[in-house]
């Protein structure tokens, strides 16, 4: 876990993990967003060939974080499953094994848009499902706030969320790298990258005062612009 990056956001200390999870040491809590379990199975049901192994890969990434950190509470920030037909037998078996292995951890899910209509599926595993969870004055939920406030209002509570699958493309003059999944802190809100494999990303357009950390080569790299506009022009 030496590649984790310590950051301060909204008065709290977090570790940004290169797998895409967020560790909150003071609460012994681990957070991930947008796992989209079983997405590959949903595609295959529509006869689009996506090989098996994606869900297992996502679970392995999560386990590798749990393995190295003392975790009491684990929060899925929504979109646990991709769709109601994502729970194929082979996907369920892997998830069973995951919950058995980490039976001492307390699991929470803040419901996301993809989690509608899968309550039957969810009952299979020991997960507390809520719309939003507040810990130590920090709001945890799937969605970002409706209105992205322009100025960081000190009165506003810190919010940690997912949903956006944020990614950032760094470019300078003619050089550019592919867009990379990132953590994005903007207006007292910390958005986590989607941890699910085969989930895709959405390019963000951060403002000058925002902070952005990309995931690359098993590292978390700060690419926030400290001055002026961060988007380079032609």
């Amino acid at each position: 876990m030496n590649e984790a990056l310590m950051v301060e956001c909204g008065g709290q200390s977090f570790q940004l993990l290169p797998q895409g999870g967020l560790y909150w040491p003071s609460q012994l809590a681990l957070l991930v967003a947008d796992t989209h379990f079983g997405k590959e199975a949903t595609f295959r049901r529509q006869n689009i060939p996506v090989p098996a192994g994606v869900t297992q890969g996502t679970l392995a990434a999560i386990s590798s974080m749990l393995q190295h950190l003392p975790v009491r509470r684990f929060i899925f920030l929504g979109d646990l499953f991709h769709a109601s037909n994502s729970g194929s037998p082979e996907v369920r078996r892997s998830i069973d094994a995951f919950f058995q292995r980490w039976s001492e951890v307390e699991f929470w899910l803040t419901l996301g848009n993809h989690d509608r209509g899968i309550s039957r599926l969810l009952r299979t595993w020991p997960i507390h499902c809520v719309e939003q969870k507040d810990i130590d004055g920090v709001e945890l939920g799937h969605y970002p706030r409706e209105e992205h406030s322009q100025s960081a209002d000190e009165e506003m509570p810190l919010r940690v969320c997912g949903h956006l699958h944020p990614a950032y493309r760094l470019s300078h003059r003619v050089e550019g790298v592919q867009k990379l999944a990132c953590f994005w802190y903007s207006g007292r809100q910390l958005v986590l990258p989607a941890i699910g494999q085969f989930t895709g990303t959405q390019r963000i357009q951060p403002r000058a005062q925002d902070r952005v950390w990309v995931l690359a080569d098993g590292q978390v790299i700060d690419v926030s612009s400290r001055r002026s506009s961060s988007t380079s022009r032609l």
Binding site: H172, V174, R226
Partner: peptide, 30 residues
Amino acid sequence: DKLRERLSSESLAERIRRMQAELEKAAQTL
């Protein structure tokens, strides 16, 4: 020709760090 490419014997992470440093330098000279 301004369109110089650099040989990427650098890893992706190294490239990002270098580009980030260049961007900051460029921003400071503005």
